[in-house]
Design a protein around this nucleic acid. Structure first.
Lengths: 315, 315
DNA sequence: TTTTATAGTTGCTTTTGTCAACCATACTTC
DNA sequence: GAAGTATGGTTGACAAAAGCAACTATAAAA
């Protein structure tokens, strides 16, 4: 790789877009919150009221944590709500330190009113958009939520491929290896060729692709295909784990699933082609029982590489 | 329209998703703003500083408007900034009521520090995401920004392809035609094959791909390649415009650009293959001067289709 | 000229939020 | 079971943030 083409992390324009969005949305939320102006509640009270109505049972500590409110401040807010008769506080039976919080009928009504109001407001905004824009807005919001809210990442899912996945495979491999190793568009071409041939000659009995997902988001993939010449040999191809999803054992799971399928499909051997620089992948192959059988230097994708062939004999 | 199929407004689940996103993002922005805790500036001061640095000339009224700050409060904030030597205020020549605001060298430095800090913070968040998730996050943010603050969408940009684009081409075509016409994975295979061959045999002199972008988001593409048999004929392929970007004349622009290039590259004819059901595209081809020369039914992608060949003679 | 609008300031007030000290209870550990 | 520590919550004191209204000075409109 030339000094000019350094492996880029987040690009400045991405950072700029991210920050611009945050500024915009800060303003947007600001105008949304102005909707509370004609209500007897402050923003903080409204948020607390929401939490009170939507948790069961509502715990003061949790609310403070979730809204990042100072416990002292929250205590006073709750006091105020109690004073206005929206909230009932009484000592907890199970834990005498904590108090049981419950909205009174009046409190529930107040919440419903607030809620209806803010639902109206949301509807007004959404209704003012063209249907397609609205759909895209919602889809984007869900995507962003999935991406930003760190969920239980250890729960990934392997599923078969479906329409559109191959495009994602090409894109993720191309971008991933371009960034990490500077491979050029000839690699993208190779991947596109492989997936094209995979789809064209697809035979469920002896070939498979698995897509790994976390929260509905694709984070890895692997292919098992018939060896072009040797009928009883399978080829493992295009193992990929997104950089951010590494360390979850996802690679191991993908390879394991592949090997399991290879056995059940009656293959007697699995081979794979990889490059000497992909050391993280090697460890995965080793753990799965593969053995390095051949090395050969070659020049591809704009780089000098050393290709490796690995094999696994199936019992 | 029947009474049953009322023109649907926003569905409850959309409203719910919208509100959930707003709650989530309120929290998210809250944590972002905690980054200011170790600085000598409050959130309001930081925002004002940002506006001061990014407007020229900065006008107090505009800043108050844009951040929806009370003018009195802003006045005090500016006073504080002036006191700390970050800001210079002096009576305006043109309008004696208003004052000219300008950051001092110290003020500029302070802004740069703040800015660098928040850029770091943004980078840290973005770097922690998988490359593809990051790309999607940014794309979604841009989409949302476009939808909520409708900018001038007619400003699209055509650019040459780069690494990763072919994956997006495959994905967008596959998903788009699967959704609209139910084409199956054989179509995805075909697209992957086409782009793979395009990359493999790419010759800048006589072949091109253009990606259409709006605000950095890919929304369309087109290819011009050499005809396999006839050397002086070019083939136009894979014209695609994202549903969300239709009606902007983007298709016309893509085809026009293609034809312009075909002429300059010395071709005498441009042909293309399309399907009878793609009527929107036909209008684009017609406007560009193409003529239908042949029709032929075929069975592809899981559907009965009528293929069409169109031609344009270049003068 | 009079009226009205704009730009900004200042005094006064409320609201909001923070910090630290504090109490009572629960859990841990020896 | 006693001592120490952690948890859940409250209170007082205070500081910061924000809003409102009155006010000055100027500009623009009638």
């Amino acid at each position: 790789m030339t000094p000019l083409a350094t492996p880029s992390d987040t690009s400045p324009s991405e950072t700029a877009a991210f920050r611009a969005f945050n500024r915009m949305y800060t303003r947007f939320i600001g105008t949304l919150n102005e909707g509370l102006l004609n209500t007897p509640y402050s923003l903080a009270e409204a948020r607390v009221l929401y939490e009170l109505a939507n948790r069961n049972p509502p715990k003061a500590t949790e609310i403070a944590e979730s809204l990042s409110l100072d416990p002292g401040y929250l205590s006073r807010l709750l006091g105020k709500l109690e004073q206005s008769g929206l909230l009932k506080r009484k000592a907890s039976q199970q834990d005498a330190r904590s108090i049981d919080l419950s909205l009174t009928a009046k409190g529930k009504l107040a919440f419903q009113k607030l809620n209806a109001r803010s639902e109206e407001q949301a509807d007004a905004i959404l209704d003012s958009l063209p249907a397609s824009a609205r759909a895209e807005l919602i889809a984007c919001m869900k995507s962003i939520e999935n991406i930003l809210s760190p969920s239980d990442r250890s729960h990934f899912l392997l599923r078969p491929h479906r329409v559109g996945d191959m495009g994602w495979v090409v894109q993720s491999e191309a971008l991933g290896y371009a960034q990490q190793f500077g491979w050029d568009e000839r690699f993208e071409a190779l991947v596109a060729k492989i997936v094209s041939e995979f789809l064209a000659g697809f035979n469920l009995a002896c070939e498979r692709c698995w897509i790994a997902e976390i929260d509905g988001r694709s984070v890895g993939h692997i292919f098992l295909v018939k060896h072009p010449n040797e009928p009883s040999t399978a080829k493992l191809r295009l193992l990929y784990v997104d950089p951010a999803a590494r360390g979850l054992g996802l690679g191991d799971a993908l390879v394991k699933e592949c090997v399991r399928f290879a056995k059940s499909a009656g293959y007697s051997k699995v081979t794979l082609w990889t490059q000497s620089i992909l050391t993280a992948a090697h460890r995965i192959y080793q753990r799965a029982g593969f053995q390095l059988v051949k090395e050969e230097p070659h020049s591809s994708f704009g780089k000098q590489l050393i290709g490796q062939e690995w094999e696994l004999e199936l019992c």
